[in-house]
Structures are given as structure tokens and as C-alpha cells.
């Protein structure tokens, strides 16, 4: 009896390899001993209630917070040991961060085109015409009328601001995107549009994503893999639909069963 063996051609090297990541706030644990690998093109969701450590973890990855211990290896290099300028360069080119509140990720007194172009220039672009053209192209890709390129984000709706923040982050063609509650605080219909947009961009650009959210519906539609955090520690992780439909840990069961029916 011969069982056919499918050649599952998978990349062997993770894009990001996190180990022992720990951060405390005095005596209180922020996150503790977090370990995971993220592969090219993979979307990993992190869920947990407020105070579970999911945002601390993301902030440590992004370098917004100092870590107490652990490694964050990106393409063979522990980014936690990088000198600050190199770290900032990485965050402006190869990595992107999407904040829950677009105003934290945008410059509100600079035009929409400027917001997108600024990141390109930080990555080394100099030709004004090309920068403006790329900015226009990106506004279209995130479904903002390019005619509004000279408007300031303060004149945009919440959903548009969020899409602009995404354009600003993705314009440099990053490999890794860290997202903190990207659909939080948006109307349900605006959320759906954003999710659809993100799914398309992830697929077309082959992005690896770590997305922190408390919205189970968002990870079900966006994440391949899911990590459940509680009290700073990972209590369960695996294939998203398996964790949600067949949760093993008591806390995951509680979390999944607390979702209101739609």
C-alpha cells in the first residue's frame, strides 16, 4: 500500500525567529518567554484580553519597548542588539508598523502624498516626480482617490486614515508588518473593507504579518496561525481555525465561547 507523498515545498528558514522574549514592568509581567517562528508569507494572529501581554510583545518586537531578555532574529541578525540607527532603518524599510490609531502612525500636518513619500525618501528615494507618482499609485491601491494627494489626513475619515497609514507602511515593500488592532475603533462596514484590502495586499506582496487584536472574527479571516496569550504567557497556539474550533486550553475555550453570535 503506497501512500502518495505530496511534496510540500515550504521555505525552511523563518523570516523571524523569536525566543525567550521577556519584558516586565517592575514586579508585573508584561510578556514572558515568548517563542515563535514566522515564515515568509505567513500571517500570525495574537489574541488575548486587555493586559494579556499581546501589545507588550508587539511593542518589544517593534523596538518601541526595551526587552529584558530574549532574541528577535530577523534574517540571521538579532535586531535587539542592532545599534539604534540600524534598527530605525530596518523599521523604515523592511518592516512596517500599523498602529491602532492612525494618527500615531501618520504625520497629521503633512499631506497624504507627503506621508507616503516621506517613508520612500527615508528609504533613499530622491526623484520628486517618481515619489509623487508612487504615492499616487499607493493611494489608489488602498482605495483613496489620488485626487486627494495634497489633502491632510486630518480631513480624512477614520477608515481613510487607517488606509493611508497602511499605504505609508507598505510603500517601501516591507517583508514584515506588525499590526496593533488595525481594525479597532472602525465601523463594521469600514472594518470589512480594510480586511479585504489587507488580505489582497498580503497575498500580492507575500507579506509576513504579526497582527494583535481582541477581535476573533478578524483573525479567523486574516490569520493562518494563532497565538493565545494570557497573563503575559502564550497558553495555546496553532492553526487558526483549529485553535478557534477545537480549543484545548480552558482560557481559549472561555475566549471563543464568549464571542457574541452574529
Amino acid at each position: 500500500m503506497n501512500v502518495v507523498n505530496t511534496a510540500l515545498v515550504l521555505e525552511d528558514t523563518p523570516l523571524l525567529s523569536v525566543s525567550g522574549l521577556t519584558r516586565s514592568y517592575g514586579a508585573r509581567i508584561g510578556c514572558k518567554d515568548v517563542v515563535f517562528d514566522l515564515y515568509p508569507g505567513e500571517v500570525m494572529g495574537i489574541v488575548g484580553e486587555s493586559g494579556s501581554g499581546k501589545s507588550t510583545l508587539l511593542s518589544c518586537l517593534a523596538g518601541h519597548l526595551e526587552t529584558d531578555a530574549g532574541q528577535v532574529v530577523y534574517q540571521g541578525q538579532d535586531v535587539l542588539t542592532l545599534p539604534e540607527p540600524a534598527r530605525r532603518r530596518l523599521m523604515r524599510t523592511d518592516w512596517a508598523f500599523v498602529h491602532q490609531h492612525a494618527r500615531d502612525g501618520l504625520r497629521m500636518n503633512v499631506s497624504a502624498g507627503g506621508n507616503v513619500g516621506e517613508r520612500l525618501m527615508a528609504g533613499g528615494a530622491r526623484h520628486y516626480g517618481n515619489i509623487r507618482k508612487t504615492a499616487e499609485d499607493w493611494l489608489e491601491r488602498v482605495e483613496i482617490d489620488p485626487g486627494r494627494i495634497d489633502d491632510r489626513p486630518s480631513a480624512f475619515s477614520g477608515g481613510m486614515q487607517q488606509r493611508l497609514q497602511i499605504a505609508r507602511g507598505l510603500v517601501t515593500g516591507p517583508k514584515l508588518v506588525l499590526m496593533d488592532e488595525p481594525t479597532g475603533g472602525l465601523d463594521v462596514s469600514v472594518q470589512a473593507r480594510l480586511l479585504d484590502l489587507l488580505r489582497g495586499l498580503v497575498r500580492r506582496m507575500g507579506l509576513s504579518v504579526v497582527i494583535v487584536t481582541h477581535d476573533i472574527g478578524v483573525v479567523r479571516l486574516l490569520a493562518d496561525r494563532l497565538m493565545v496569550m494570557r497573563h503575559g504567557q502564550v497558553v495555546e497556539q496553532g492553526l487558526t481555525d483549529r485553535v478557534l474550533d477545537d480549543p484545548q486550553h480552558a482560557y481559549t475555550q472561555l475566549l471563543v465561547n464568549s464571542v457574541l453570535p452574529t
Binding site: T6, L8, V9, L10, A192, R193, L195, D224, R225
Partner: peptide, 24 residues
Amino acid sequence: PRQVSALRRGTLGYVSQFLRVVPR
């Protein structure tokens, strides 16, 4: 999880009774 995702992409199809899609 990655192997299962890859299997589902090209090899293992599933017709569910439930439709789970981004609403728009």
C-alpha cells in the same frame, strides 16, 4: 500549522456548509 495550510492550498479541498468570508 504551516504544513496543514500548504496542504489545504493545493491538495485538500473542503466544501463546508457554512460560508465564512469577508463581508464585502
